[in-house]
Design a protein around this nucleic acid. Structure first.
Length: 537
RNA sequence: GCGGGUGUAGCUCAAUGGUAGAGCAAUAGCCUUCCAAGCUAAAGACGAGGGUUCGAUUCCCUUCACCCGCUCCA
């Protein structure tokens, strides 16, 4: 499938538009049109219903260590700036970068170091990305090459300093970049703010600086104690949230896949440390099954465990649910959802302060003054189990899904081309979306076969009987084949047609989008039939 | 942020330094008894800004967006 065709269909039929299009658009932002908003709502509602409201806390779900509870939360997009300092986002998302004009590579300003050296009457700073002994060797090697010397002439290089961070160097004109052959190819350090900054209060001073959240998860962690104190949940339990998040992606690309404003569906599941591995396995499989059940059933969907090198600083186990989007190179997959075992990292961070890894564990990162670099709340976020009389910090399993990425994957998977016979029996090309009925924006369309003999009136009665329960669509214009084709193109799974026989025996035809099969149903049983086909509503 | 490519109607494509055409789609009506048929009518575009020119959609510059490759991706 060519992505252009799907993008074109999305725009033509009102699924997705470029944001601010009449002003030329805005990179990394997309709007959902009348049909797109229904699709995305259906995805979010299926998630919320399946994960939260229809969850039965009285039974042990298949594959789960025991029964558990689920509750929801909806917190603000702007939170106290300290939230992001303790979570680690502030440090990781706030970098100065330098670019090399010659090698086209980009480096973190604070991760490049080097040494001053003089030779042949010139003084240059030789930079490297390496560390320690390796950095000394690398800089020597590059200096020899730069001055056109052999290894045996190394003593002609007069090194002036030990390794210095590039941040100590003010003038880049004498800097030899890590991958450059000439001096002065590095740009001035530029600030990359991966979090959107804003100002709370009418006066936009730095004291009011805040950030739009880059993930919804932290709002759950900072409300952990509130939920414990105000509901009767007990560990193990999960808190779910759906909401917008914002990241200043350096390269927004691939349609809505990498957007700067996007919507997440996240669960933070709190459990006893001794059971956390089993819960991780449960959620990993449960979430994978969820996508399968909604139609991402092909080999384009996969569940992939992260390799140890890939694991984030906080994680002791992560699996990605990935989809082979058509815009990616063959064999490449894009992330739909990550299920991470986060241990007690987050709750501890919000108690004690920002943590860093040390000797296989975590310690509070200290600033130059010996105090926590980013102090935590100081609040007690431990959990007391009054059955076992045990107090502990729960471990967290985080299934974090992208609603927009899910919508895009469902659209890609649904896009189909085939041929159907026209009125003369000749094959005619057809484009249709094979969306799961739960996700389809329109559940059924109701047509009179022709606009006479009382058929429109009969069809309208059926339409009105269905409308309170399902998003249905009425159309009486033009040839019926054209109306079918239009519904196929937006993924409507069923069409209901009133024809000449309706007046005789009170039946109408149901037509299936994927098979074109038709069968007769009593007009007064259309709601029942649709409920059987789509699910209760 | 770098390099390459592309911007004309909803879509696909024309033409032109001097009034921008078509097919399909969409809209209204007629006709139509099951898969985009037919007839009629009306509607609809040079991504944005600047420059050169008597005149720019066309030539030049800038910018914005999209696509491809780098780079980045907690």
């Amino acid at each position: 499938m060519e992505m252009e065709k799907l993008v074109s269909l999305c725009k033509r039929r009102g699924f997705l538009y470029q944001s601010s299009e009449i002003y030329g658009g805005l990179n990394g932002f997309w709007d959902y049109g009348p049909l797109g908003v229904e699709l995305k709502r259906n995805i979010k509602e299926a998630w919320w219903r399946d994960m939260v409201t229809s969850h039965d806390e009285l039974v042990v779900p298949s594959g789960a260590p025991c029964a558990y509870e689920m509750v929801g939360l909806d917190c603000t997009i702007i939170m106290h700036p300290q939230v992001w300092k303790c979570s680690g986002h502030y440090d990781v998302f706030h970098d100065f970068m330098v670019d090399c004009r010659q090698s086209k590579r980009r480096y973190r300003h604070d991760q490049v170091q080097g040494r001053w050296v003089s030779c042949q009457g010139r003084r240059i700073f030789v930079a490297t990305e390496a560390d320690g002994e390796e950095a000394l060797q690398d800089t020597q090697h590059k200096a020899l090459k730069f001055f056109n010397l052999r290894a045996k002439d190394a003593d002609r290089l007069a090194w002036e300093s030990d390794l210095l961070c590039l941040t100590e160097v003010k003038d880049f004109s004498a800097v030899l970049g890590p991958d450059a052959k000439e001096l002065g190819t590095l740009t001035e350090p530029r600030e990359y703010n991966l979090m959107f900054k804003t100002y709370v209060g009418a006066l936009s001073g730095e004291e009011g600086a805040a950030f739009l959240r880059p993930e919804t998860a932290q709002g759950i962690f900072v409300n952990f104690k509130n939920v414990l104190d105000s509901t009767r949940v007990a560990v193990p339990f999960g808190i779910a949230q759906i909401g917008k998040s914002f990241r200043n992606e350096i390269t927004p690309r691939y349609f809505t896949f990498r957007s700067r404003e996007f919507e997440q569906m996240e669960i933070e599941f709190f459990c006893h440390p001794s059971q956390s591995r089993a819960w991780y396995e449960y959620w990993r499989n449960r979430r994978y099954q969820w996508y399968l059940s909604l139609g991402l059933a092909g080999e384009r969907l996969r569940l992939r465990d992260h390799t140890p090198e890939e694991l984030s600083h906080y994680s002791c186990g992560t699996a990605d649910i990935e989809y082979a989007f058509p815009f990616l190179p063959p064999g490449k997959f894009g992330e739909l959802e990550g299920i991470a075992h986060r241990g007690d990292f987050d709750l501890r961070s919000h108690m004690e302060g920002k943590l860093v890894r040390q000797d296989g564990g975590y310690v509070v990162e200290l600033g130059p003054d010996g105090k926590p670099r980013h102090p935590g709340s100081g609040k007690d976020l431990t959990y007391f189990d009054d059955q076992t009389r045990e107090r502990y910090i729960p471990h967290v399993i985080e299934p974090s899904a992208g609603a927009d990425r899910a919508a895009l994957a469902f659209l890609c998977e649904a896009y189909q081309e085939d041929q159907v016979p026209d009125e003369h029996g000749n094959p005619r090309d057809r484009v249709f979306l094979r969306l799961h009925p739960r996700l389809a924006p329109i559940k059924a369309a109701v047509f009179p076969l022709v606009r006479k003999d009382g058929m429109p009136e009969a069809a309208q009665r059926i339409y009105r009987s269905l409308k309170p329960h399902f998003n249905v669509f009425y159309d009486e214009k033009g040839a019926v084949g054209r109306r079918y084709a239009r519904q196929d193109e937006v993924g409507t799974p069923y069409c209901i047609t009133v024809d000449g026989q309706t007046a005789l025996d009170g039946t109408v035809t149901f037509r299936d989008r994927d098979t074109l099969r038709q069968w007769r149903v009593r007009a007064d049983d259309c709601l029942g039939e649709l409920r059987r086909l789509v699910g209760v509503s």
